[in-house]
């Protein structure tokens, strides 16, 4: 049995080296970069500048105080606001709609297999592809959704969904909800299927109304699975990049933290500031990860050796 422990160490080593090289070290370097004046063209000539990339307060001779750095940048706070807004609304709707779809799939009816197969399609489509598909459907002139809206009398004139600052976030939300609700539904469905059927039978015998059943039985029992799924999705929503980058390029109304950081790092030659922004996003997500692990009450040592 001692040999097993030795073997285990060798078995873990390659994975741990791999993770250290692709995750640990780059993360440490990114954080380090955020405290230097590094540029894209000169990664090794960086000098330590402390918190200057985050916040720098300087008092001019005239007595005026100048704030610089990411934390004093309105574009950054706009991106933070967009990210939080996006995460909140997308996860809220995905949860509600995911619950509805999961309840439908949990019922027994003819054609259930078809529905389950159908909802896997949005999940399987690459995000970039769905962004382009939807931007075609949302096209102001030739888009089928404007056409549909006008035929049904919902719209009086075509709307430039992705280009207009008023509707850009809505467009992003619709596409994300369309694409991710299936994932949510499947996770919730797994939770629903763990609820023993005889509880419902007992409730029926007691004459509990189906709606009451949902609030009194289903929801409390599915809550652990639901909470984990929600946190999972929040973490994912907070790092959103590809959908926004493709669907609403260069729109201030939807630019999120990831998009802004990537632009600063590789397009605007603000490598140090971009690093500071990505570090801040990392801190935000780390906070949520801790919540996730705490809420998930992940039991690592149950029932094994």
């Amino acid at each position: 049995m001692r040999q097993r422990a030795v073997a285990a160490r060798w078995f873990l080593l390659p994975m741990m080296i791999a993770l250290a090289v692709v995750a640990g070290w780059p993360l440490a370097r990114s954080i380090y970069f955020s405290f230097t004046d590094v540029t894209l063209n000169d990664l090794y000539g960086a000098e330590w500048v402390g918190f200057a990339n985050y916040l720098q307060i300087r008092t001019l001779e005239s007595g005026r105080v100048i704030y610089r750095g990411v934390l004093a940048d309105p574009a950054w706070w706009n991106a933070v606001w967009n990210t939080v807004r996006f995460a909140f609304w997308s996860v809220l709707w995905e949860t509600i709609l995911g619950m509805i779809v999961a309840l439908v799939l949990n019922a027994e009816f003819r054609g259930r297999g078809i529905v389950r197969a159908a909802i896997l399609i949005p999940w399987a489509i690459p995000t970039i592809v769905s962004a382009r598909m939807w931007s075609w459907m949302l096209n102001d002139q030739f888009g089928i959704l404007n056409d549909l809206g006008m035929r049904l009398g919902l719209l009086s004139a075509p709307v430039a969904w992705t280009a207009s600052p008023d509707t850009a976030m809505l467009a992003v939300l619709v596409v994300d909800i369309w694409k991710t609700t299936p994932f949510m539904a499947l996770l919730i469905l797994a939770g629903l299927q763990m609820i023993p059927r005889d509880i419902y039978e007992a409730a029926r015998i007691d004459g509990v109304h189906p709606i009451k059943q949902f609030w009194a039985i289903t929801l409390p029992l599915v809550r652990p699975a639901l909470m984990v799924a929600i946190i999972f999705r929040v973490l994912d929503a907070l790092r959103i990049f590809d959908l926004i980058y493709v669907l609403t390029p260069n729109s201030a109304a939807t630019k999120t933290m990831s998009v802004l950081a990537q632009e600063n790092l590789f397009q605007f030659n603000n490598f140090a500031e971009g690093s500071a922004q990505s570090t801040l996003l990392f801190l935000l997500i780390a906070l949520f990860t801790i919540v996730y692990i705490w809420l998930g009450r992940v039991n690592f040592d149950a029932g094994d050796r």
Partner: peptide, 14 residues
Amino acid sequence: MFPQIAVLAGLFEV
């Protein structure tokens, strides 16, 4: 759960 953006700069260097 890592945001990929958080390692982007460091990965670029590696």
